[in-house]
């Protein structure tokens, strides 16, 4: 490791690195700042367009020149409601509500047979 440099330090280079480096760090974060300062406005552009449309419609309705809204009959509403209820109800498993002990039938195997156990030695 060189503890002291034998060559003469080029201080102009050091100052350039320091000045440019610090400015670039500042600029990078400044650009990020400016972008995100304007971000809510950009994101709200679509929203404000929708709000404007709703307001225009409401104003038109107040003036009485609204287009006839589509009429939905009671039967159709009931059918939609039923469909939604059935759909959401099926999100959960339907359980029978009967609790029983399940019988398990195992096939016979001589490996588990008591007849052939090691304790059953013929005397």
């Amino acid at each position: 490791m060189e503890e002291t440099t034998t060559s003469v330090v080029d201080w102009s280079q050091i100052w350039i690195i320091t000045g440019v480096g610090y400015t670039v760090v500042f600029l990078a974060l400044l650009m990020l700042m400016l972008l995100f300062k304007s971000m809510p406005r950009v994101l709200n552009l679509g929203l404000s367009k929708k709000i404007r449309e709703v307001r225009e419609k409401a104003a038109a309705r107040r003036n009485g020149d609204t287009k006839q809204e589509k009429y939905i009959s009671g039967e159709v509403s009931a059918a939609i409601g039923l469909a939604l209820t059935l759909y959401f109800k099926e999100q959960h498993d339907e359980e029978s509500g009967i609790i029983t002990i399940k019988r398990v039938a195992r096939t016979y195997s001589p490996w588990s047979s008591k007849i052939y156990g090691v304790n059953n030695n013929p005397r």
Binding site: V9, I14, Y22, V25, F26, L29, L32, M33, L35
Partner: peptide, 25 residues
């Protein structure tokens, strides 16, 4: 977002140390 500039300002520590390290040889 304006608080981002504080993170940039504190980087003076990096560049200050750079000058100091060169000065120390």
């Amino acid at each position: 977002p304006r608080l981002m500039l504080l993170g940039a300002a504190a980087q003076i520590g990096v560049f200050g140390t750079f000058i100091g390290a060169v000065a120390l040889g």
